[in-house]
């Protein structure tokens, strides 16, 4: 199916990606080809098969809800671009 400029802009927004004007033709072309390719699934006879969510059809293993790891906030925050007093700094969200 052919994708429109509006489709691309909408998908990009959902994916939190910026699409520049000059990138729109490449996206409509290449994504359109990919969607056309995966459209082959439409013809598959799947009857009442259940969707396969896990390659071994295993269920999720759970563990007791107890603390197992030490606090490593400072270590993990070493990779943050901006932080202060143990907090991540982001542009103002609430006025």
């Amino acid at each position: 199916m052919a994708l429109t400029r509006k489709d691309i802009e909408y998908i990009a927004h959902l994916a939190r990606l910026e699409v520049h004007e000059d990138e729109i033709p490449a996206y409509t072309d290449k994504l359109g080809k990919i969607i056309g390719f995966i459209d082959a699934l439409d013809a598959a006879e799947t009857g009442d098969l259940l969707p396969m969510a896990h390659p071994l059809n295993m269920s999720q293993r759970l563990r007791p809800d107890v603390v197992t790891a030490a606090d490593q906030r400072d270590v993990y925050q070493q990779n943050a671009a901006e932080k202060e007093g143990g907090l991540y700094i982001v542009p103002r969200v609430v006025e």
């Binding site: 994916a15 990606l17 994504l31 699934l41 799947t46 259940l50 969510a53």
Partner: peptide
């Protein structure tokens, strides 16, 4: 973008759910 599209409202059943069935 492809992944966002196949998971988006209106397309989820036709693509993602269908693919999970074909996977089976």
């Amino acid at each position: 973008m492809t992944g966002t599209y196949v998971l988006s409202a209106g397309y989820y059943d036709a693509y993602y759910l269908k693919a999970q069935k074909v996977r089976q």
